[in-house]
Amino acid sequence: MNVADLVAIDVHTHAEVSEDGHRSLSPELFGASEEYFKAQGHRQPTIPEMAAYYRERKMAAVVFTVDAEHATGHRRISNEEVAGGCAEHADTLIPFGSVDPWKGRAGAREARRLVEEHGIRGFKFHPSVQGMAPNDRTAYPLYEVIEEVGVPALFHTGQTGIGAGVPGGGGIRLKYSNPMLVDDVAVDFPELRIVLAHPSFPWQDEALAVATHKPHVYIDLSGWSPKYFPPQLVRYANTLLKDKVLFGSDYPMITPDRWLSDFEKLDIKPEVRPRILKDNAVRLFGLDAVGRTPSTGGA
């Protein structure tokens, strides 16, 4: 990965389909998400197809799935498959893992192995889908390992399209995705680099408060078209958080083409734009000129 040649780093994309056609969510929850994003009928890309898509645009992309086996009873896409697919396209893809926090110390051992043996560069959590508050002590052995190995943890925050419109929300509890619950994690693991994913509706002010108060907490802008960003998010991105806000699309539900087109119309200072699109992610991931990180040696 030649970072200097990249125009942007998308820190939030989903590997939704495995090589054998298995999806990371049940048909009911996946269908609700497609309906929410008005993405019905869109073909879900494979990891090689994602690589080709981003390579064509001279972008890099962080790729992950969600391990929520305990809460959903649905088998995850293998972290090893994500890592291997990204390793084959290391010029453009950055692999993140996902370990169900209900797995406790077994999950912690898995996380260490994924980083040390498979080049995983961070971990994705979706508290609402995984059915656990981020500050539940069951997850703490997992966070301990992630902090120790020095890779980021990305937490879904706010509303989710998963389960939207399904009776009972498909069992998805929105309260677990309040960013104030992640504030406890930032206190208890002060060296852990944390990303709060999405404009955190209805808790946008809470997310801004946590990110301004805790030095290692970032915000990604995925899951929303920039034309719908709350004004306070734009204001903070231009000022207090200009070094801690990250470009993310939520591909394939939202394409980077659509996101970037709307971002061009947003009132963002010219000197802040490159920070959001690439520079902040380069610093967060510790990437050098050719995309390696000191902690993992690259994927």
Results as ranks from 00 to 15, higher is better:
276 I>D: 00
254 I>R: 04
243 D>H: 15
253 M>Q: 11
273 R>T: 13
248 G>R: 00
254 I>W: 06
258 R>C: 07
250 D>K: 09
268 I>F: 02
252 P>C: 01
285 F>D: 01
265 K>P: 09
247 F>G: 00
250 D>G: 11
282 V>A: 05
287 L>E: 00
243 D>S: 15
244 K>Q: 09
288 D>H: 08
256 P>H: 06
284 L>T: 03
283 R>K: 14
251 Y>S: 10
277 L>R: 08
288 D>Y: 05
279 D>P: 03
280 N>T: 14
281 A>H: 03
263 F>H: 05
267 D>T: 15
281 A>V: 12
282 V>H: 01
245 V>A: 04
260 L>P: 05
281 A>E: 03
249 S>L: 01
264 E>W: 13
280 N>Q: 08
247 F>M: 06
271 E>H: 15
283 R>F: 04
287 L>A: 03
283 R>W: 02
253 M>H: 14
279 D>T: 14
271 E>C: 04
254 I>P: 04
253 M>K: 10
259 W>M: 14
257 D>T: 13
283 R>N: 04
261 S>F: 12
262 D>G: 15
246 L>M: 06
245 V>G: 02
286 G>N: 07
285 F>K: 00
283 R>M: 05
288 D>K: 07
247 F>Q: 05
252 P>H: 00
278 K>Y: 04
278 K>T: 05
252 P>W: 02
266 L>F: 05
271 E>D: 15
243 D>I: 12
272 V>G: 05
253 M>R: 10
269 K>V: 10
269 K>G: 06
250 D>Y: 10
252 P>S: 02
267 D>P: 12
255 T>N: 07
288 D>A: 12
244 K>C: 07
266 L>V: 13
284 L>G: 01
276 I>H: 00
244 K>N: 06
285 F>S: 00
259 W>R: 06
264 E>G: 15
280 N>K: 07
250 D>S: 11
279 D>M: 12
271 E>N: 13
246 L>E: 01
260 L>W: 01
252 P>R: 00
273 R>Y: 06
274 P>W: 04
283 R>S: 12
289 A>S: 15
245 V>S: 04
246 L>S: 03
289 A>E: 13
281 A>S: 13
245 V>D: 00
274 P>Q: 02
250 D>E: 13
282 V>Y: 07
245 V>W: 01
265 K>E: 12
287 L>G: 02
244 K>P: 11
251 Y>D: 07
284 L>M: 12
